[in-house]
Design a protein around this nucleic acid. Structure first.
Lengths: 228, 228
DNA sequence: ACTTATATGTGACACAAATCATTTTTAACT
DNA sequence: AGTTAAAAATGATTTGTGTCACATATAAGT
């Protein structure tokens, strides 16, 4: 099997596509490389393409008027980003940058639009994907509005260890290139607060912090915090 | 022209539909009435239908574990709610309740699904609608995470006067059945804080408060606050 | 490896917003 | 209209989180 197709099938957006559809998609791919800390596109740029991550780590974020950052999402291998404009025809709703050296597959908007128009069932699948996204967005919104900082931090950690964590004999290791600043920008607090709340959890024995390596020791207790 | 069709055309979701498509939609409608303060569906209920507001005012909201409420949206005539489950097949992602006595048109999930499957171009339009929603949701999320209370309040007021405001000689009158509690639940603060911040704006001469009637006097200054 | 830059930890303080308690006002009901 | 219940305003207080300043640790570059 074409490894490209196999990789596409693992993405949220193409998961339900048939082999034939995936084959067509794979022909539209253009590979691009981005060094760490380089911007892929800026919010409100006209959109030219959307992206599938071959390997690397990409953050999607929005800025406030005074330059503070909210990270909407962090995506790893198989992640898809910059796709909303393809659907609604507007500019990019957020910015994207590579957190580590990354290889991404871009699919141009016009190519993808043609594909969707020729395959009616693709759009049904996309509708399902978008519905799920909207759901998630509203959940995050509720958390941001109604939960306090330790709750949001716990929620974030749980989400991330489930997605990116690796099991070790000490616990579940989270080893993204996640700075304190990044954590702060994910839960909408200052860097100092992110530091302090993280070490509170460490002192309470829920996790261990070693620089940017975070090892979750007691997922259950963390989960209670998160729900609280 | 069928007034039903005319009304449907004014809704966000059906705006781009053709006459023939709208006619088909109108045949699927079942009218239902809800007295004020009655719940239409609860979050996580299995979804049976989505709704178009014929007349009335509906709030869509989510609860935190400890029972506090975040209002995701308030919809008036022509508004559409409860539609996400139709798209992704899950349960209702939020609850909905009538804020005043309301008449809504329900369209059952199965009926609508059939319609979409028979009309390929409908799904393309839905994709566009969902894309826009996702965009909005992320904007609100950024505001909630990065803006302070007066900024969020100003942003909310501007959004609402643009949608529901009526021009008077004093300014733009906002006359939803919007309690202080409602305002608080829209911007994620306590009722007391909503009260206080609103009267701060009143003292600064940006608006006038008379019970639940809010008259915006200086939209421009409010807009500056909102962007800040 | 050494130097420089950048990220992190931490204390002191300021300030925004929550909470609590009470009064006043407004809306709802019969 | 009068009574009761609910909502809103308002003051006092507490708490959480941001900001500032600086020390320390870690990473990056030569």
């Amino acid at each position: 099997m074409d490894p490209k197709i196999e990789h596409l099938r693992k993405t949220s957006i193409f998961a339900e596509f048939s082999d034939a559809e995936l084959d067509e998609v794979s022909r539209l791919i253009v590979e691009r490389r981005f060094k760490h800390d380089t911007v892929i596109f800026h919010e409100s740029d006209p959109s030219y393409a959307f992206y599938v991550i071959k390997e690397g780590r990409i953050k999607v974020y929005k800025l406030s008027e005074d330059g503070r950052e909210l990270i909407i999402g962090i995506f790893g291998n198989g992640g898809v980003f910059g796709d909303v404009p393809v659907f609604d025809g507007g500019p990019y709703p957020a910015s994207a940058a590579a957190m580590i050296d990354s290889v991404v597959w871009s699919i141009s908007r016009t190519d993808f639009e043609k594909l969707v128009k020729n395959h009616a069932d693709i759009s049904l699948k996309l509708i399902r994907v978008l519905g799920r996204r909207l759901r998630q967005a509203h959940n995050v919104l509720r958390d941001m509005a109604l939960k306090n900082v330790p709750q949001r931090l716990a929620t974030l950690l749980i989400k991330f260890i489930d997605e990116y964590g690796t099991h070790t004999d000490e616990g579940i290791l989270l080893e993204l290139p996640l700075s304190r600043q990044n954590i702060a920008e994910l839960i909408g607090v200052s860097r100092e607060t992110a530091t302090r709340e993280l070490s509170k959890f460490a002192k309470a024995g829920l996790l261990k912090v070693d620089g940017r390596r975070i090892t979750i020791i007691d997922r259950d207790k963390l989960s209670i915090w998160s729900a609280k």
